[in-house]
């Protein structure tokens, strides 16, 4: 009985968070003021981090909060400094993009129908978990199974992830570094103006 109550409270909390995410998404899509969009996107990331905490994925929540809400917001604001505050009105009808986005979304929802039920214990992902939890301390001496899995058991995956970040960083540098040399910098409007 008590367990059922706790589950309901958690489900209610999840519902509130997910509804908040949906509302924010509409807000981001509707809003023309880009500064407001950045703020909403930052709030979105914080809500997402809370969802991940509820799902017991503290490591991912930490990443989401620091990357999504922290650094991304700053980078978006830096980008905003280079452009206008208001989003330009679309030149053509938005019906076709809306249709494409709707169909893509519907296909994604259709895809989720094939996913296993939420928290289904018979799925391989939940079967492998206890195995790692048992093995991590005797085999590696590392108490946090997330770290031992990430860095030791699945070290090759993490090497790939690090390479992805490296590649992304190099790509952004290649794209943005071009033409940084200014011909005649105006006083008070240099790179420090942020």
């Amino acid at each position: 009985m008590a367990e059922a109550t706790i589950f309901n409270a958690e489900a209610l909390f999840n519902m509130a968070l997910l509804t908040g995410l949906a509302v924010l998404t509409f807000g981001i899509a509707r809003l023309r003021n880009l500064f407001g969009v950045v703020v909403l996107a930052s709030i979105y990331s914080f809500l997402m981090a809370t969802v991940l905490v509820v799902l017991d994925a503290v490591d991912v929540a930490m990443t989401e909060a620091s990357v999504g809400a922290g650094v991304s917001a700053v980078l978006l604001l830096s980008a905003l400094h280079l452009t206008r505050m208001e989003e330009a009105k679309p030149m053509r009808s938005t019906l076709l993009p809306l249709f494409v986005a709707g169909v893509t979304g519907a296909v994604l929802v259709w895809g989720t129908l094939d996913l296993p039920d939420f928290g289904d214990p018979t799925q391989p992902i939940h079967a492998a978990g206890p195995d790692y939890l048992e093995r991590t301390v005797p085999e590696t001496g590392i108490a946090n199974a997330v770290t031992s899995t990430l860095a030791s058991y699945r070290g090759f995956d993490t090497l790939g992830e690090t390479t992805v970040i490296f590649t992304a960083g190099i790509a952004v540098l290649v794209l943005l570094k071009r033409g940084t040399r200014r011909r005649n910098p105006k006083p008070g409007e240099g790179g420090d103006a942020l």
Binding site: L82, T147, S148, S152, I165, T180
Partner: peptide
């Protein structure tokens, strides 16, 4: 194992932090 994980995580720290800073420099320097 702990040494290996330490070194690997150090590598991740260096790449991630410098990539973030590099992107910030690229945006803010324009």
């Amino acid at each position: 194992q702990e040494t290996g994980v330490f070194l690997v995580e150090l590598g991740v720290l260096i790449t991630v932090s410098s990539t973030m800073l590099a992107i910030f420099y690229a945006f803010a320097g324009r």
